[in-house]
């Protein structure tokens, strides 16, 4: 890991810095999406980029996700490196044909003659009181499709390094940001660095139980691990960082070490990312498991607008703490 020299950025600032550095480095990198230019997105992630790079490289589009995602696929095939902004992850439903049937397939069906080096940045995460159409975590949909890479940063450091890798990748990459994490601060080096796709990170070492967590759930897992430490349970927190490619080895090694695993992901638990990760772990570490692999994700309901209801649909530090304690028999 590069030296940070104590420099701290928010998650949003780290994303913006990665984009700015890549746009300076490579003239083919451009941004398109709704409210990305003057507004800098509703989350203010892109503020200042229009001023530096101009409206030819930071393009406001009509409200037409299918249209401008298709535009980006074509631009990528013809030499650009577009970064598409889909404001809420819920809106990826409108981009599915462009991503699944075009972006994911072009390299394969052209026998390698075409490539689609584009990035789709979008969001996930509940508890923002945004109701059922603006609160879902639908990243599992893209994980299901061969030809797409799926990146899930959980810290400002990882966000900058992973976004640079995604932009430089020759394949379509979908980059999910937790909209509740934009203000999270962390050490970020000023220099150029990348975090490779497909390498998990042990965010906290432990002995008694592994909490395998993605994106928004990594901070939840770290909070739960602190609570568990107080009752004498040493929890390891493992962040896959990318769901495809997936670093199976690190997940399995952690499971073998601790013998107990909870898999956490904010997507719907049923048929979700947690099912895939749990299966990888159960297969790879079966003879070292002392308990069934437990999955925790969003409840199988539309995310409610009502704050008290919304808060119980996704795992929290308290529910993870209690599940881990039960799994350890305490």
């Amino acid at each position: 890991m590069p030296e940070t020299g104590g420099r701290e950025l928010t998650f949003a600032q780290a994303i913006r810095e990665a984009l700015a550095e890549e746009m300076r480095r490579d003239k083919t990198v451009c941004i398109l999406g709704e409210d990305v230019a003057e507004a800098g997105t509703p989350f203010k992630v892109l503020s200042g980029l229009l001023e530096e790079f101009g409206k030819d490289r930071v393009l406001d589009t009509p409200i037409s996700e299918a249209g401008f995602t298709g535009l980006a696929v074509g631009a990528a095939m013809t030499g650009m490196r577009p970064v598409v902004d889909i404001m809420f992850g819920d809106f990826i439903t409108l981009t599915m044909d462009q991503m699944v049937n075009q972006a994911a397939k072009v390299h394969y069906m052209s026998g390698g003659m075409w490539k689609v080096p584009m990035v789709m940045r979008t969001t996930l995460g509940a508890t923002r009181r945004s109701a059922a159409q603006h609160s879902q975590s639908l990243h599992a949909w893209f994980c299901h499709v061969p030809g797409l890479k799926v990146v899930m940063p959980s810290t400002p450091f990882d966000a900058k390094g992973l976004l640079k890798s995604a932009i430089r990748d020759e394949n379509p990459v979908v980059f999910f940001e937790d909209k509740m994490m934009y203000k999270l601060k962390g050490s970020v080096p000023a220099e150029d660095y990348t975090v490779p796709l497909g390498v998990a990170d042990v965010k906290r070492a432990g002995e008694d139980i592994s909490l395998v967590a993605t994106s928004s759930m990594v901070q939840v897992a770290l909070g739960a691990a602190t609570m568990l430490e107080e009752i004498g349970i040493s929890a390891e927190v493992v962040d896959p960082r990318t769901l495809w490619p997936l670093d199976e080895k690190t997940l399995i090694e952690s499971a073998k070490k601790t013998s107990r695993v909870i898999v956490l992901d904010e997507g719907y638990e049923r048929y979700g990312v947690t099912a895939e990760l749990a299966s990888v772990i159960a297969t790879g570490a079966f003879y070292d498991l002392d308990a069934p692999v437990k999955r925790m994700g969003a409840m199988h309901v539309p995310i409610p607008f009502s704050p008290p209801l919304e808060d119980v649909t996704v795992p929290t530090e308290q529910t993870v703490f209690e599940a881990a304690r039960a799994l350890c028999g305490r």
Binding site: S259, F286, Y287, D288, L289, D290, A291, A326, L327, G329
Partner: peptide
């Protein structure tokens, strides 16, 4: 548990008389 079963077989432990300390009375490693 699978781990306990493997250890029992490796170490020749007879399962009939070991403690069952799991949350549901399972034999653990």
């Amino acid at each position: 548990s699978p781990k306990a079963r493997r250890l029992a077989s490796e170490r020749g432990v007879n399962l009939a008389h070991v403690r069952r300390s799991g949350p549901g009375g399972e034999i653990l490693a």
